[in-house]
Design a protein around this nucleic acid. Structure first.
Lengths: 232, 232
DNA sequence: TACGGTTAATGTCTTTGTGACACTTTAAGG
DNA sequence: CCTTAAAGTGTCACAAAGACATTAACCGTA
């Protein structure tokens, strides 16, 4: 390789990868926050993330996954890019760029591990305002929440907040926790059928009334997008 | 500022900002390509872009705008982030990250300037396959095209490929060039009315038949998104 | 000035998918 | 066996797009 292209020829901005990892606990949407162990903003809460390790990470996706695994011990069920945030004032060390991912997990997959670490916690989306948050992460979380809410209206992504086997009622309440409104059970069932991305299991599960049908995501299928939003 | 946070403590990946600038000429969707004047991939065609200049650019948005102005002499009418692409193999210089924007302009705003420069040209989206393209920019353009097509189905972004004053027929043919299918004129008119983002001008313009109504975007309005896609 | 060609705009019936909500089914517990 | 509760179904209303016929307005030409 021609040595005249020095990788440090240009003053590179500070580049980090952060993730907004969401789940639904009870009827509330939660986001994973981590207590910062370093300056800047030491002691405040921020999104899990950090620098790319070019010797380990094949891509920024793997950086995000690696950092999330450090905190949760598992890979999230859903991961996609949100967007990047940049500016000269968002980090005291200078011009910085952060690539933010947004991710979903089922609570039960990670809660046991998170309970054992002191520096990570699920924060209710409504309580972010009161928390001492690092950088512009409050703003980032707001953007990520809006994207998630939008996606919940036209896609099946909320299933990734559920365990492998789930019922219509579970999916309904997860969607409702995300968008903050109730939806029609009938409409959801119609979508489940139209999506053709779920297996109907033989098993049923008790629920206080009639037994509920269990579903699971068909292996290998992609998330389905609909051509129409649920009503707002 | 505490000097213990050395900005070069971590091996930063190579970070660039590129843009996929689209327009519609005739009935074809075109993307702006630039002949590379430097290694790597000298002489091949790539997306306009480059490194952030932390002394000039307040954010990566401004990096994208600055680089586009160098090639077109004007700011695009529409600019938004597509996503980032990263990896260890996409640039021979090492691990690289590129933040890609996708942008729209009216052809007449820039064509005169582009004709005068040798190293930039509008390339028909269908002819990208035959062009010697740098990096993974073929793949990036494909992704940008898909996003643009999707947006054309549920939003009014295609107006940004049109001059200030335009007719329904012009908007219709721009949308059709983008998505590669015909749409119902009636449906488009219904959306124009529902969006409430256009002014109906007194002026009309001749078109070979009945005079066509002129519209313009109301100043200060945001792009309107619909809750339903046009049919595919 | 009348007529045909051409493009713009409207009218309207059909189609599709969601909202609303009543109704039926099936389980648990007394 | 009756009550309660949640699961699941049936059905009509409604909203917005598709399809396509009809009307409107302009131009050139005879």
């Amino acid at each position: 390789m021609n040595k005249s292209y020095d990788i440090n020829e240009f003053k590179n901005p500070l580049f980090t990868v952060d993730s907004a990892l969401f789940t639904v606990i009870g009827n509330s949407l939660k986001v994973l926050m981590v207590k910062r162990a370093n300056e800047p903003f030491l002691g405040r809460w921020g999104l899990p993330g950090g620098f790319v390790d070019v010797d380990i990470d094949d891509s920024t996706d793997l950086t995000a996954l690696r950092k999330l695994k450090e905190k949760t011990s598992v890979a999230p069920q859903y991961l996609e890019q949100l967007r990047t945030f940049s500016g000269i004032n968002r980090d005291p060390r200078g011009f910085s760029v952060t690539l933010v991912y947004f991710a979903l997990v089922a609570e039960q997959d990670v809660s046991s591990h998170i309970d054992t670490v002191e520096d990570a916690q699920w924060v209710d989306i409504k309580q972010i305002a009161d928390l001492p948050v690092a950088f512009d992460h409050k703003h980032i979380i707001e953007q990520a929440k809006e994207r998630l809410q939008q996606k919940a209206l036209y896609s099946m992504v909320p299933v990734y907040c559920l365990p492998e086997y789930f019922t219509v009622s579970q999916l309904k309440s997860v969607i409702e926790a995300i968008i903050g409104k109730t939806i029609q059970r009938k409409s959801l069932i119609r979508r489940i059928e139209a999506a053709e991305m779920f297996e109907v299991l033989d098993e049923k599960v008790k629920s206080g009334g009639r037994l509920a049908q269990l579903y699971k995501v068909k292996p290998g299928v992609d998330i389905v997008n609909f051509e129409r939003n649920l009503s707002v």
